[in-house]
Design a protein around this nucleic acid. Structure first.
Lengths: 201, 201
DNA sequence: GATATAATATTAACACTGTAAAGTTAGATA
DNA sequence: TATCTAACTTTACAGTGTTAATATTATATC
């Protein structure tokens, strides 16, 4: 009676195959330059087969972005363990966030800039990966506030300020690679350092 | 012999007409949802006429964005006059920058996020409007640094840190309107205030 | 093993897209 | 009036996302 299970497994496998192909194409050539037909070609299925697994192209993008968020979450959570100082932990998290964005620039843009243009929902619903990523940030910040390392301020606002800073620098570095930036690592560190100092002040 | 001039004027007029129509459509319905045919319909010309005035759709986007930058520059320069304290002037400029982005969210995204995806060049070349906007920021910052109001730091880096912050918060507010943000104005003020405090520290 | 049934995949088609090439028209020059 | 030229349109092509109808395949039942 394992037939059903095997079938389900096979179905999931094809779903994954589509996702892998879609991510690779989206990331290398940009979401709007990739057609359903191109994805279909890559996996050697007919274009319409994709619609048996995903509602439409935006839904496919959505699933790719969910994976990216999961990837980001895992990357961040690997840090958490080995750092006792909460401010230092926050600094490292910020650094890791930006580095993640620069390591997978297209994934980052897809998730945090392109996707919102197509899917109006935020992807931060109850139990979603996006929510978990945000909770991670919230916890980090909360620790700093509780230990009075920051000036008295709403935890939510504090988190949002930090997010603004890292999101901003990540996108600028991605979008304007030719701009005469300060040396990249120095800029990232300075952005994070400045923001954290500002939160202490 | 005024014929040539009249013709040139008419030509420029149609160019402007196309730009106005394109901006309105792009801004209201999004760049990727607008076809050349829709723009052509709006101005009551055939679609291919547009190609006599603009190289392609990306070039048309480009011109729309140039106008946006000019608009931003004018908005910013109106501030300059009436503020003697350089830090306060910088704060106001930051505030104005974000407000501009939120007042014309689609223009902002078009210029600072969508455009770089299509036109790899930055649009900050010698003599360009983009360069002027950036010079404005540079001057503001420079004033603060010269008057020792900020901790000793490279003017370029300081400017880039500020730009990161305001760019970040602007985009987050645009892209995730449903997120449970701190009250919008408070968040913007806090982002700018925190960054500036961090630069002093 | 043959047949009915359900799952999965494909073909054909529609209404669009950006844009190149060729054709048309109106006004200026000679 | 004939010719030239700039401005604009028509036509056409190859490609797009997506739907409905159809075909194929694999399983379950007899």
């Amino acid at each position: 009676m394992g037939t059903k299970e095997r079938r389900a497994r096979e179905k999931e496998q094809l779903r994954q195959q589509i996702l892998v192909a879609a991510r690779e194409l989206f990331v290398n050539e940009g979401y709007e330059n990739i057609s359903m037909r191109k994805i279909a070609n890559k996996i050697e299925y007919s274009p319409t087969t994709i619609y048996l697994y995903f509602k439409d192209k935006a839904d496919l993008l959505d699933s790719v972005c969910q994976e990216t968020l999961l990837n980001l979450l895992n990357t961040l959570e690997q840090l958490k363990r080995d750092e006792s100082d909460p401010v230092e932990a926050l600094r490292k998290s910020g650094r890791t966030y930006v580095e993640f964005g620069l390591k997978y620039p297209q994934d980052y843009k897809l998730t945090f800039v392109i996707r919102p243009q197509f899917q109006k929902g935020l992807g931060l619903e109850e139990g979603s990966v996006g929510e978990k990523v945000f909770n991670y940030l919230r916890e980090m910040v909360s620790e700093c506030v509780q230990q009075k390392r920051f000036r008295q301020m709403d935890v939510e606002t504090t988190g949002q300020v930090l997010w603004s800073a890292v999101h901003g620098v990540t996108l600028l570095l991605i979008d304007f690679p030719d701009f005469p930036w300060t040396e990249k690592d120095e800029l990232i560190d300075t952005v994070i350092h400045t923001t954290i100092e500002g939160l202490k002040a």
